[in-house]
Structure formats: structure tokens, C-alpha cells
């Protein structure tokens, strides 16, 4: 508990841009953030994954100085968010789920307004506005009312407004909610570009495919950090044993049959197949086939697969729910 965040989660070498230690946020009797500790490196895409109400937004708002922590410490860009929020605000960009733009202003007016608030002026402002227009693909639509833009454009414009002042750290709170898949992909390319330029991108999501793009992921549940690591680490660490894919002509009879086997630790339906967690694939193969034959379920496919992030997420949340307190 008293160790520094660096020791604990192994953010490793490189400049630390966000360091959070034992962060707690209570609203009355409700604990929204429960003793969370982690840190991020410069240039890292750091993902916050978790169901609605898990404390993602609350944590991000604390890091932006919008909410005061109940206890614990959060240092962003070298400044404590509780004692010096103004120094933090000059060094961060923040984009909320709502894409906080003025719908009755034009694209250009929105950019000028936010640029002015961040103190970006003169030649630098026009250069940054140019950059933002290019980034958002809005050249030629400068004078359109923001209300007339579709979701993907609004989202990129909101990002442009949030980073006009070139902040070293950017917080994106579910930036892709309500945006079509193509725009989501384009948006993630922008995130990767920013990270390559050395910007730390802090992003919350509940899309598994987006989580794969992150360098590291923090998995939150009910305000607690239940896992932290690169997506590959989480996938390997979450599933104890091997993961097998079973395709059969009768899911119902198959799942009943394999669940009775001592070799099968867990069985879950994934699409039109089953995912089975077994201690060792070699030992489990024959008993599974025998049990399925007895249950008159034909095996179309049975093989060892690599766990997906979704498998890891399901396994981690299940074990966290079963074994409170996880810490």
C-alpha cells in the first residue's frame, strides 16, 4: 500500500505522466472509486475498460480537476490535481461523452472560442485551427453550423477543440459512443498518431475491439481496479489453463454434458460455439469427445484457441465478483 505506483504496476521506464495512488471518491454512502492505484507513461495509450457505473468517468473527472478526490493522490503532468488543478488544466485536453460543442456556432467559431479559452492566439491559433480542420476532415465546412455535422465529424471536431493548445496529456471519456464504425476506426488512427507524437492518451471505453488498440488497460469494476496490464498480458493471465473452442450441432446438449466433466472448469456460449476452460487441453480432449458422443452431440470442431479480450474480461469480472475483496 505504501509502495509507489511505479513499483506496483510496473509502468516501467519512461516519463510518468499520470500517477494515481489509493484514489477514493465517495458520493455520500456510495463509493464510486475505491482505492485505485496506477500510473501511465508518456506517449502511452492507456485504456479504461469497465461496465457502466464502474467508476471510469469519475476517475477521469478527478484527473481533470472536475471532482475532488475524497482521499488518495493523483498527480497529472507533475501537478497534484487536488492542490493545483489550474496547473493541471493548462496541460491537459478533455473530451467528454457529450462532445461539448456549441451547436449554434459554426465549426470555425467553435475552434476559435476554445482556442481563445486556452490562450492560443494569433498565427499559432490559425495554424492549429488549420491542423484541426485537416485532422477532422472539415476543410471547406468551416462555416457550417456544428448542428448540421454528423456524429463522426462532431467527434473529431470535439477532439480538435480539446487539443488546440497541444496538451501533453489527453483524457477521452467514451469518445466513440454513438459514432459509426468507420468513424470509430478513423478516430483510433488519430489517437495512435497523437501517441506517436508523445501525447499520453487516456481513453475510457466499453468496446472490446477498441480496448485491443490500447498499450495498457485498466479494468474497473464497481470502482475497483481488478486488473491492469497490456491486452496480451490480460488475455494470458486471466484464463488459468487452456481455452478450447467447441463447435457442435447441439449447443444445449453439449454444454450440459461438458459441464459434468471434472476436467472442464468453465463453459460459456460465445456466438454459435462454446468456449471451454480446461486445465490441460491434451488431457481434456478425449473425455470431452466421449461425453459429447454419449450426449449425441456431434463435434464439428474442437481445438485450442488464444483467449480474446472478451474471454479475459468475462473471466476477470467473474472471479472478481466471486472473490470479494480482490485486493
Amino acid at each position: 500500500m505504501n509502495s509507489t505506483p511505479l513499483d506496483r504496476d510496473g509502468a516501467g521506464a519512461g516519463e510518468v505522466s499520470v500517477a494515481v495512488q489509493d484514489l477514493v471518491k465517495r458520493f455520500g454512502a456510495f463509493t464510486a472509486v475505491d482505492h485505485v492505484t496506477f500510473s501511465t507513461r508518456k506517449g502511452e495509450v492507456f485504456g479504461f475498460l469497465g461496465p457502466n457505473g464502474s467508476g471510469k468517468s469519475t476517475t477521469i473527472r478527478i484527473l481533470c480537476g472536475l471532482l475532488r478526490p475524497t482521499s488518495g493522490r493523483a498527480v497529472v503532468a507533475g501537478f497534484d490535481v487536488a492542490s493545483d488543478p489550474e496547473s493541471v488544466r493548462r496541460r491537459i485536453g478533455y473530451m467528454s461523452q457529450k462532445f461539448s460543442l456549441y451547436n449554434d456556432l459554426t465549426v470555425l467559431e467553435n475552434l476559435r472560442f476554445y482556442g481563445g479559452l486556452y490562450g492560443v492566439t494569433g498565427a499559432r491559433l490559425s495554424q492549429r485551427i488549420n491542423w484541426a480542420l485537416r485532422m477532422a476532415g472539415l476543410h471547406g465546412r468551416e462555416d457550417s453550423r456544428t448542428a448540421t455535422l454528423s456524429g463522426g465529424w462532431k467527434q473529431r471536431l470535439a477532439l480538435g477543440c480539446a487539443v488546440l493548445h497541444r496538451p501533453p496529456i489527453v483524457f477521452l471519456d467514451e469518445p466513440t459512443s454513438g459514432v459509426d464504425p468507420l468513424s470509430r476506426r478513423q478516430f483510433w488512427e488519430l489517437i495512435q498518431q497523437m501517441a506517436e507524437e508523445g501525447v499520453t492518451v487516456f481513453v475510457s471505453t466499453h468496446y472490446m475491439d477498441e480496448a485491443e488498440y490500447c498499450n495498457r488497460l485498466a479494468l474497473l469494476m464497481r470502482g475497483r481496479l481488478i486488473a491492469l496490464g497490456a491486452p496480451s498480458e490480460l488475455k494470458l493471465g486471466a484464463v488459468q489453463g487452456d481455452l478450447m473452442l467447441l463447435e457442435t450441432d447441439s449447443l444445449q446438449r453439449a454444454i450440459e454434458a461438458v459441464r459434468k466433466l471434472p476436467q472442464v472448469r468453465d463453459a460459456a456460449v460465445f456466438g454459435n460455439a462454446l468456449h471451454l476452460v480446461v486445465a490441460g487441453a491434451a488431457d481434456a480432449n478425449q473425455p470431452i469427445r466421449a461425453a459429447l458422443a454419449a450426449a449425441r452431440a456431434h463435434v464439428l470442431r474442437l481445438e485450442v484457441i488464444r483467449p480474446s479480450l472478451e474471454d479475459a474480461f468475462v473471466a476477470l469480472t467473474a472471479s472478481a465478483a466471486a472473490a470479494e475483496p480482490i485486493r
Partner: peptide
């Protein structure tokens, strides 16, 4: 209501 206040609050204003 529209959320811009939150956005303004994170600027150095």
C-alpha cells in the same frame, strides 16, 4: 445542460 460548462471548466479560465 448541454455539457459545455464541463468543457469550459477544464480550460484554464
Amino acid at each position: 445542460e448541454i455539457g459545455t460548462l464541463e468543457q469550459i471548466m477544464v480550460t484554464p479560465i
